[in-house]
Write a protein that binds this DNA or RNA. Structure first.
Lengths: 121, 121
DNA sequence: GTTATATTCAACCAACGAGTTGACTACGGA
DNA sequence: TCCGTAGTCAACTCGTTGGTTGAATATAAC
């Protein structure tokens, strides 16, 4: 436990059941029992899933009599999108640069004598 | 194995080492040995990580003599961002609607007699 | 043909994750 | 006060995962 935030969010959403719960919670807050209803698993299993989502910061739980309404925290999504966008943009930019390079010097496609260093340009 | 694409991508990126490799590959293609260099793990372990990334569609591997240059496939990121954006937008919209509701009828904050159905309104 | 390099495959192990059952706590209501 | 409902905690099982070592494959270099 106590992994980095990004790992927590990614692995929390790696489970289809948990993604499903997030989808359900996007519609509106729900109790543990309500969340458990659609699935064939026990309420304890759902409780565990919610703990994972909570540890990842994706949901919060308040207290309302004996119920614990679960609320989706959309902010954490930003963490992921930022990470993803960063590397996607980087990869796309690199692709564009490679494209430019190939356009200006077409002989670069020929087998280079020093492929050991990779394609860092 | 053979899980849904979204689960594969999310769980592939749930590992910090693999995210690190993606970051490295965003800079440029690399061989397995090059990718293994910064880490204290064996090259076999890195090979396994690459298989996970490949199964998720995040990287592709070509053949170049005895080397297998690894290339980042940025397209798959879209799958994730689409999923994330969908529910983030949904949650934000719900929040806005709830905000409107509370503005128009402030007595809605009072304990309602039917909290069982949640806040789907 | 043999050797060195790059990578993967196979078998194994420890740790983890998702599920279970059973016992427990916390309320609200009769 | 006792019962029913909502939820969590603890202990256990079982499959998966990340790591290892050792052998195998593919190719280049000698």
């Amino acid at each position: 436990m106590a992994a980095d935030p990004l790992s927590l969010v990614f692995s929390a959403l790696a489970d289809p059941t948990r993604r499903d719960m997030v989808a359900r919670l996007a519609v509106g807050d729900a109790t543990v029992n309500e969340l458990a209803a659609p699935y064939h698993v026990t309420v304890q299993a759902v409780s565990k899933h919610l703990k994972v989502l909570e540890d990842a910061g994706l949901v919060s739980r308040s207290r309302e009599a004996q119920r614990r309404p679960v609320h989706l925290e959309a902010k954490v999504f930003d963490l992921m999108t930022k990470w993803i966008e960063r590397y996607r943009r980087q990869a796309e930019e690199r692709y564009r640069r490679l494209d430019d390079l190939l356009r200006t010097m077409p002989e670069a496609i020929e087998p280079t004598p020093t492929p050991k260093t990779g394609a860092q340009t």
